[in-house]
Simulated assay, not measured.
Amino acid sequence: MATRGAYAKGVIKREEILDAALAVVAEHGYRKASVREIADAAGLSPAGLLHYFGTKEELFVAILRARDERDARVYADAAADPVTALLDVMRHNASVPGLVQLYAQLAAEAGDPEHPAHAYFRERTATVEGASVAGIVAAQAEGTVRSDLDPAWIIRAVHALADGLQSAWMLDPSVDMAADIEQFVALLRP
C-alpha cells in the first residue's frame, strides 16, 4: 500500500515539475532555462529534479511530451480538422518562443539515434502524421482537398513547412507562421 502512495506522490510531483518547467522554458527559452532555474521553480534542488528525469536532455524531452499533451487537451475540439488544429497550435506557438526553441533544438539533435529525443520525435511524427492522414482522406472525399495528391505526402509537406516556419520565425518574429500555412493549404484546394 505504501508503494502505491509513494508512486502516486511521485507522479503528482513529476507533473508539478513539468508544469513549472513548461513555464520556465516558455518564458526564458531552451538555452537560458537551466536545471537550477527549473528546480527552483519546482521547489527542488537540481539533484532532486534530476531524480525524476535522469538527465537534462530527458527532462527536456519530458517537457515536449507535456507540451504535446497540453496542446492535445486545449485543441481537442479542432483535432477533427487537422488544418484547423495545426493553425491553432501555430498561433499559440508564437506566444511561447522558448518552447519553439526547445522543439527546434531537440529536433535537430534527435537526428542522432543515440540522443534521448530520437525516440520521442519518431513517435511524435508517426502519431501526428498518422492521425492527420485520415483527415486529409476525408477532405479529399468531400472535395475540399485535391484528390490527385497523396495524403501522406500532404501531411509530410505541411509538417516540414510548420517546422521550417518555426525556425524562420525564431530568426524573424514578424513571420506569420499560421498565415503561411494557410497559403500553402489554399494550394491544396481543387
Rank of each mutant, 00 (worst) to 15 (best):
A33G: 04
S34Y: 10
V35L: 12
R36L: 05
R36Q: 13
R36V: 07
E37D: 13
E37R: 15
I38H: 03
I38E: 06
D40E: 15
A41S: 08
A42S: 12
A42D: 08
A42W: 10
G43E: 08
G43K: 07
G43C: 12
G43L: 12
L44H: 04
L44Q: 10
L44R: 08
S45Q: 13
A47V: 09
A47P: 03
G48F: 14
G48W: 14
L49P: 07
L50I: 08
H51R: 14
H51P: 02
H51A: 07
E57V: 03
E58C: 11
E58D: 12
L59R: 08
L59I: 11
F60A: 00
A62S: 11
I63V: 15
L64Y: 04
R65I: 02
R65V: 05
R65P: 01
R65T: 08
R67C: 01
D68K: 04
E69D: 15
D71Q: 11
A72F: 12
R73E: 15
R73A: 14
Y75E: 10
Y75W: 14
Y75H: 12
A76P: 04
A78I: 01
A80H: 14
D81T: 01
D81E: 01
P82H: 12
P82V: 13
V83T: 05
V83I: 15
A85K: 15
